[in-house]
């Protein structure tokens, strides 16, 4: 555990909690892609199946349980409790175009051809693109609530901090995981355009809106 890894995890946790609180307090999931949230629930479920097979630390177990619990709570709020506020017409990204290729890639490129390892690999690949329905929705409506942009910033920052963590681990522990690194770079790059808008607009007190 190093400082980048810890702040990355906390940034991830902050993102998840910001989104849950935003929906809960406003009693609305307007502007939130339910599809992205379903993909994140799938990501956590397929990655953390090792909760059942191996114990690493109290920290590791509790974070995994919190991430999974929050992911399902978010999906529940969007599709059940506040379903009436869900903006399904604008959430029109075709997720099968992500899930199917990612599933194929996980079967072809992995560390070990075993059930849990392929699911872990699938979750890493899927996470790298799971935000696309949300970004697509924002590009379609041309705007995002400020609280939603804070969520996206924390979520993007988390993987960027993990990249620094992997550089650290490469130098100080001679450890690297090529699958996680390549997927993590892809994931971070997808946020770059958003990071630019966040810094130039939201941090200066303006609402994030895209030119028509």
């Amino acid at each position: 555990m190093n400082v980048f890894r810890l702040t990355g995890d906390l940034s991830h946790l902050a993102a998840i909690i910001i989104l849950l609180l935003k929906i809960w307090k406003s009693r609305s999931c307007a502007g939130i892609s339910g599809k992205s949230q379903i993909l994140f629930a799938i990501v956590f479920t397929t990655r953390y199946l090792d909760l059942l097979t191996s114990f690493i630390s109290i920290y590791n177990t509790s974070m995994k349980v919190i991430y999974i619990g929050c992911a399902y709570a978010t999906v529940y709020l969007i599709y059940m409790k506040f379903r009436a506020t869900y903006d399904g017409n604008h959430d029109s990204f075709r997720v099968e175009f992500l899930v199917v290729p990612v599933g194929g890639l996980a079967v072809l490129v992995n560390h070990d051809f075993s059930f849990l390892e392929i699911l872990w690999t699938f979750s890493i690949y899927l996470e790298s693109v799971a935000i696309l329905p949300q970004l697509f929705m924002i590009s379609k409506t041309g705007e995002a609530e400020t609280i939603t942009t804070h969520y996206l910033f924390c979520l993007g920052l988390y993987r960027a901090l993990y990249l620094l963590n992997w550089i650290w681990r490469f130098y100080f522990e001679s450890f690297f995981d090529m699958i996680a690194i390549v997927a993590g770079v892809v994931q971070t790059v997808l946020y770059c355009d958003f990071f630019y808008l966040y810094i130039t607009k939201v941090l200066k007190g303006k609402k994030l809106s895209l030119p028509a």
């Binding site: 890894r5 995890d9 991830h12 191996s54 590791n60 390892e117 993990y162 450890f175 995981d177």
Partner: peptide, 10 residues
């Protein structure tokens, strides 16, 4: 093992 190592991360 290397495989066990990456499982430490979230």
């Amino acid at each position: 093992s290397e495989e066990a190592k990456h499982k430490d991360e979230l």
